[in-house]
Design a protein around this nucleic acid. Structure first.
Length: 598
RNA sequence: GGGACCGUAGUUCAACUGGUUAGAGCACCGCCCUGUCACGGCGGAAGUUGCGGGUUCGAAUCCCGUCGGUCCCGCCA
C-alpha cells in the first residue's frame, strides 16, 4: 500500500515515485493549488495538487478535510527555494500528486482538533473518551515509546545479569493486609472469588524457593483504592527478586539499573552513589519518609529550648510526649506576610489540614526576635541565641513552629515545607535527587484498631533477629527495624523492597504480630509457610513503579500521560464506559445477586 | 466519606457589579483565490450557558440540590 514513510524521505528521493499513506493534518486550498500536510506516524510531508494534474483528481482533492485518511502516489520534488519550510524535517521536499485514494472519511466535526499546537488546551475528559484521537496527535505516542524504551533497557540489563522473566497469575488469592482487592467471581467453585494481585510478592518468593535464583517481571498490579495523579487502580511494576543476596547487594545492583535507565533514556550520567538516609532521620529532619531533598528548610527540634520557657502550649506539647519543631524560611520576612500564617491564611490552612492546632512563628530582625508576646516575654538572651543556632536563622528569616503530637507536627511541617517550596519557587527543577531510605521499622501501631501493622508488608525480615523461641521473638520483633529500603526521587517514592523472611517460624511470628491467629495464618498463608519449611533460600528484591518512573522521565504531571488507556479519577474508563452492568444470566451463572437499588 | 476548583457553540475561550438579541478564534457549510505552511478574503449556519429548583422586574452571573471533570485529605506503597 505504501513504500515510504514521511520521516524516511530526503533529497535522494527527489524524482522518485513514492506511495504514502496517512492523515490530512491540514489543508491549504488556494483555489488553484491545494497544499496538504500529510501526516503519518513518523512525521509530515507537504503534498501539492494542481488543476493541471487532472480535473477529477483536483475535484477529489477539494473534498479533503482534516483527518481524512488517504493514500497518495506521486513524484518527490524539490520545493522552490523561497518556499522551504525550516520547521519540517521534509521541508525542502514536496510530493506532486499523480494519484489520490481516499481510504476513509470523517463523519462529523471531530471532538477536538488533532493538530499538535492545540495539545495543551484540551479537556482531559475528552482526551480520555477519544483516546485514539489523542494518541494520533503524537505526544502520547512519544510517551508510550519512551515507556517502551525504559522497559527495553531494563529487560536487557536484567537479562545480562541472569534474570528470567516469569509471568505470575492474575487470578489469585485474596490476602489480608495491604490494599483492598479487586475480586473476580469463580464460576467453577461458586461462591468463591479470585483476587487480582496487588503485587506478585508471594509468587516471586515462591520462584526463589523453586530455585529460579533471579526473577523479574513487568507486572500488572491491582489495588482497589482511591485514585491520584500518580495512582491508578491498575498499574505496572518493574518487579524483581534475587536469591542469596544481602541488602547492600540488592541496593547497589538496582542503583546501577536506575542509572542505566537514566543514561540510556535521558543521556544523564548519575555519577555519584545515591545518598542513603535512615527512616528515622527522614522523619526527624523532613517529617516524611519520602523527602524531597532538592531544597532545604529542614525540621529542627526546639523542644529543649522552648519546652520550659513557660508558654503553655509548648510546655504541654513536650510534657505529653510530643515535640516542638520548626522550619526556617530564608528571607521569609519579606516573602511571607503575617496574614498568610495567621488563622485564615493559606499557610495556616495547610498546617490545620494536616491536623495541627495552630502555627507559631518567629521573625528574625537583626539580633531581635519578633513574635507573639506570650513567647517573646518568656525568652531570655540564652534562649534567643539557642533558637538562632538550632534553626540556623539569620536576619530577615521566618521561623515557623509546630508543637504537639510528634506525628502531627512532622506531618504539618512536611506539608508546609512542600507548599512553601512550590509557592516560593525554591525547587531546583533540573535536579534528580535520588535517595535510599533504609532501616524502616517493622511495624506501625494502629491505635484505632489497637494492633500493629506492617509498614511495608509482613514478609519483610527484621534486622538482627534470629529465631530462638516465640517469647523472645514477640518482644524483639515488635520494635525492630526491617531489612527494607525505598528509593525516593524528588519526593516521590519510585520503588521499595526488602530482604524477605525465609524461615517459617519467623514468618508465623510476624503474621501473629500483625494480628493474625494461627488458624488465619494457616488458611491465608499456609502455602507460604509450607514452602519456607522446604528449603527456602535467603532472598530479597524490589519493585519499581514503572508508571511513575516514566512520568518523571517525561516530566509529566500524571501517570495517565504514560498509560495508553487510563481510568479517570472515578476509576472509570471513559472510552469503554467500564465498569458496567452485566446481564442477569451472567450473574445467575455465578450465583451473584445485586442488592443495591437501581 | 470529606475539602477546593471547574462546567458557555464541535472545540478553545470571552461576556465588568445581575441589565438589550450570549460574542470571538479554530473547525464546519457556501463563494473567491496558483506557492502556502496555524495561508488569505467575503458570507453563513451553529447555544436548553451540564441538569433541576429558588431569589429577582430581570440569572451564564447570586443561592440550594444534582450530574460530570480535575487536584487534594482520608485510603493506598
Amino acid at each position: 500500500m505504501r513504500n515510504k514513510i514521511c520521516e524516511e524521505l530526503n533529497n535522494s528521493d527527489i524524482g522518485k515515485l513514492v506511495n504514502l499513506c496517512g492523515w490530512v493534518d491540514r489543508r491549504r486550498d488556494h483555489g488553484g493549488v491545494i497544499f496538504i500536510d500529510l501526516r503519518d506516524h513518523s512525521g509530515f510531508l507537504q503534498i501539492t495538487i494542481n488543476p493541471d494534474d487532472g480535473a477529477s483528481l483536483f475535484k477529489q482533492a477539494e473534498t479533503l478535510r482534516n483527518e481524512t485518511v488517504i493514500r497518495v502516489s506521486g513524484i518527490i520534488h524539490e520545493r522552490p527555494k523561497d518556499s522551504i519550510n525550516k520547521n519540517l524535517s521534509t521541508g525542502e521536499l514536496e510530493l506532486k500528486v499523480k494519484d489520490l485514494h481516499i481510504l476513509n472519511q470523517i463523519k462529523n466535526n471531530l471532538p477536538f482538533p488533532v493538530s499538535i499546537h492545540d495539545y495543551e488546551n484540551t479537556k482531559e475528559e475528552l482526551r480520555l473518551k477519544y483516546r485514539y484521537l489523542d494518541l494520533r496527535r503524537g505526544k502520547l505516542l512519544e510517551n508510550l515509546k519512551t515507556r517502551h524504551k525504559i522497559i527495553k533497557v531494563a529487560r536487557e540489563y536484567l537479562d545480562n545479569y541472569g534474570f528470567t522473566e516469569v509471568e505470575t497469575p492474575l487470578l489469585t488469592k485474596s490476602t489480608p493486609e495491604g490494599a483492598r482487592d479487586f475480586l473476580v467471581p469463580a464460576r467453577l467453585s461458586n461462591g468463591d472469588f479470585f483476587a487480582l494481585p496487588q503485587s506478585p510478592q508471594l509468587f516471586k518468593q515462591l520462584l526463589m524457593v523453586g530455585g529460579l535464583d533471579r526473577y523479574y517481571q513487568i507486572a500488572k498490579c491491582f489495588r482497589d483504592e482511591d485514585l491520584r495523579a500518580d495512582r491508578q487502580p491498575e498499574f505496572t511494576q518493574l518487579d524483581l527478586e534475587m536469591s542469596f543476596v544481602s541488602e547492600e547487594e540488592i541496593i547497589s545492583f538496582n542503583e546501577k539499573l536506575i542509572k542505566k535507565i537514566w543514561k540510556d533514556i535521558l543521556n544523564i550520567n548519575l555519577k555519584d552513589a545515591f545518598p542513603r538516609m535512615s527512616w528515622a532521620d527522614a522523619i526527624n529532619n523532613y517529617g516524611t519518609d519520602r523527602p524531597d531533598t532538592r531544597y532545604k528548610m529542614l525540621l529542627k527540634d526546639l523542644g529543649e529550648v522552648l519546652g520550659n520557657i513557660g508558654f503553655n502550649i509548648f510546655t504541654k506539647a513536650v510534657k505529653s510526649g510530643g515535640c516542638i519543631k520548626s522550619i526556617t524560611i530564608a528571607g521569609g520576612n519579606s516573602s511571607i506576610s503575617n496574614v498568610r500564617i495567621k488563622p485564615g491564611g493559606d499557610i495556616f490552612q495547610v498546617a490545620q489540614d494536616a491536623g495541627a492546632g495552630g502555627l507559631a512563628f518567629i521573625r528574625v530582625k537583626g539580633h531581635e526576635l519578633e513574635t507573639i508576646g506570650a513567647i517573646k516575654d518568656n525568652l531570655n538572651q540564652e534562649n534567643i541565641s539557642d533558637i538562632l543556632r538550632i534553626t540556623e536563622a539569620k536576619d530577615g528569616d521566618l521561623i515557623l513552629l509546630g508543637a504537639g503530637d510528634t506525628k502531627i507536627v512532622n506531618q504539618s511541617l512536611d506539608r508546609i515545607r512542600q507548599y512553601i517550596a512550590k509557592n516560593l519557587n525554591l525547587i531546583a527543577k533540573e535536579k534528580w535527587n535520588f535517595l535510599w531510605i533504609t532501616d524502616f521499622p517493622m511495624f506501625e501501631r494502629n491505635e484505632e484498631e489497637n494492633r500493629y501493622e506492617a509498614l511495608h508488608h509482613p514478609f519483610c525480615s527484621p534486622k538482627n533477629i534470629k529465631f530462638e523461641n516465640s517469647e523472645k521473638f514477640r518482644k524483639g520483633i515488635e520494635g525492630s527495624t526491617a531489612n527494607a529500603y525505598d528509593l525516593v526521587l524528588n519526593g516521590l517514592e519510585l520503588g521499595g523492597g526488602s530482604l524477605r523472611i525465609h524461615e517459617a517460624e519467623m514468618q508465623k511470628e510476624v503474621l501473629r504480630t500483625v494480628g493474625l491467629t494461627d488458624q488465619e495464618i494457616d488458611e491465608k498463608f499456609g502455602f507460604l509457610i509450607e514452602a519456607l519449611e522446604m528449603g527456602a533460600p535467603p532472598h530479597g528484591g524490589i519493585a519499581f513503579g514503572l508508571d511513575r518512573i516514566t512520568m518523571l522521565i517525561l516530566g509529566a504531571d500524571s501517570i495517565r500521560e504514560t498509560i495508553a488507556f487510563p481510568k479517570n479519577q472515578q476509576a472509570k474508563c471513559l472510552l469503554t464506559q467500564a465498569p458496567a452492568n452485566v446481564s442477569k444470566s451472567q450473574l445467575k451463572e455465578l450465583d451473584i445477586e445485586i442488592t443495591i437499588d437501581e
